[in-house]
Simulated scan of single mutants.
Amino acid sequence: MTDAGRIVPMDGGHNFRDIGGYPAANGRHVARGLVFRSGTMSELSDRDHAILDSLGLKVICDLRSTSERSRRPSRLPEAAQYEIWSRDHLMSAGDLTEAMRRPDATPETVRGMMIDAYRTLAYEQAPSYRELFLRIARGPLPLVFHCAAGKDRTGVATALLLDLLGVERAQIFADYALTDDFFARGCQLVASDPVDDRLAQVDPAIWEPMMRADPAYLAAMFVALEVRHGTVEAFIRDEFGLDDEDIAAIRDRLLV
Score class of each variant (00 low, 15 high):
Q81K: 14
L76W: 00
R198V: 10
R130W: 04
E108T: 13
D238N: 13
R253F: 08
L141S: 02
D203Q: 04
R251F: 05
Q81N: 11
Y118T: 06
G20D: 02
R169D: 07
L141H: 04
M114W: 00
A205T: 03
P103W: 12
A31P: 00
A50F: 03
I247P: 02
F222R: 15
F235Q: 01
V190K: 12
L164V: 13
R130H: 03
R228M: 08
L96G: 04
A31C: 14
G186P: 01
V35S: 01
D62I: 10
F173A: 08
A191W: 08
L165V: 06
G230W: 12
S128Q: 06
E226H: 12
P127E: 01
L96M: 13
P204L: 08
P142K: 10
R251M: 07
A137N: 07
M221Q: 05
P103T: 11
T154S: 12
A200T: 12
V195G: 00
Q201E: 08
T40R: 15
V144K: 08
S86H: 11
D244I: 06
A31V: 15
R130D: 00
I115D: 01
S67Y: 01
P140T: 09
V144Y: 05
R185V: 11
D18R: 14
D181P: 03
S86F: 05
L189C: 02
F183Q: 07
S54E: 12
T179F: 04
